[in-house]
């Protein structure tokens, strides 16, 4: 219940933060919302000697639309994205995903990039960002770079961030067309990590065909997974019963869940099918 001792830094600029990371290397951990890191430190699963609290980095706060993207600052809390009415129409998946994460006090504190950088394959945001085809904005000693979300997750608890880099924002392409989204999740208890989670976003063209479809799967592999075959199948088609049926079957093919206390791999794969089907049916109704 008590973390091991550490040196605490609370830098106020990104440059200062990067310098600290360069200096301390693997000894340092970034503290954002802390809702995964601090519990791990309390259980002494994580014992970083250096903690760099980035909550004073004002540049990492807030969201804005620019250059065809929604830029969400790294320190944006889950609750902000859950409650922000201005985002609900164009980016409905944000609110629909956020409300499934843990519980209110955790959502008040936890941050979107903190969750992505933690790279838990059971992370709801991971699946959602896959569905949204997001990029992660990364800042390091040599400046800013953008990493497509599919390249961001490398392995369980591992991202493509270098040791002296931080994630500063996520960038979500602004949809052109009507958007429908769902986050489907089954939990053992409210606020638990998903048995399986499915993030779905469909962008519909004026002629009723699907302009873009994004499907992210949570707890279906070592990293958040893209249901690529199902996405490809959907694009250019319309959301009728047969199309949805086929998409739900294809989505299973990209899912590679593990058997554990939450259920068998077979069960979880079937949940993927059920959730893709239900989610797309609901979206079809909504966008009709």
């Amino acid at each position: 219940m008590i973390p091991t001792a550490f040196d605490y830094y609370s830098p106020t600029t990104v440059d200062e933060t990067i310098a600290l990371l360069q200096k301390h290397g693997y000894d340092a951990k970034i503290l954002a919302g802390g809702q995964s890191l601090l519990p791990m430190m309390k259980l002494r699963v994580a014992m970083p000697p250096i903690l760099i609290d980035i909550n004073q980095l004002d540049d990492l706060r807030g969201w804005r639309e620019e250059n065809g993207y929604l830029r969400i600052g790294a320190l944006t809390r889950h609750a902000d994205l859950e409650q922000e009415r201005n985002l609900m129409e164009r980016y409905p998946l944000l609110s629909k995903t956020a409300e499934w994460i843990a519980d209110v006090p955790v959502r008040n504190r936890g941050t979107i990039c903190g969750s992505l950088v933690h790279a838990d394959p059971g992370s709801d945001w991971g699946a959602a960002m896959i569905a949204l085809r997001a990029d992660v904005e990364v800042i390091g000693p040599s400046g800013v770079r953008r990493v497509p979300i599919d390249e961001f997750f490398v392995d369980t608890f591992t991202t493509s961030l270098e040791i002296d880099e931080i994630a500063s924002a996520v960038l979500i392409p602004s949809p052109i067309g009507r958007v429908g989204a769902r986050y489907m999740k089954l939990e053992r208890k409210a606020g638990d990590f998903a048995i399986v989670g499915v993030a779905l976003q469909v962008v519909k063209a004026n002629d009723g065909t699907i302009l873009d479809a994004g499907i992210g799967l949570c707890a279906c592999g070592d990293v958040p997974v893209r249901a690529k075959k199902a996405e490809e199948w959907l694009i250019g088609r319309s959301l009728d019963k047969e199309t949805i049926q086929q998409a739900s079957l294809l989505a299973q093919e990209d899912a590679n869940p593990a058997t554990d206390l939450r259920g068998s791999a077979e069960y979880k794969r079937d949940l993927v099918r059920v959730f893709v089907k239900r989610g797309l049916e609901e979206i079809a109704d909504e966008l009709r």
Binding site: Y8, D53, A79
Partner: peptide, 13 residues
Amino acid sequence: GKAVKSCTVLAVQ
């Protein structure tokens, strides 16, 4: 003004 679990916030924060 926001509810937080005070076991998961450092005092210095």
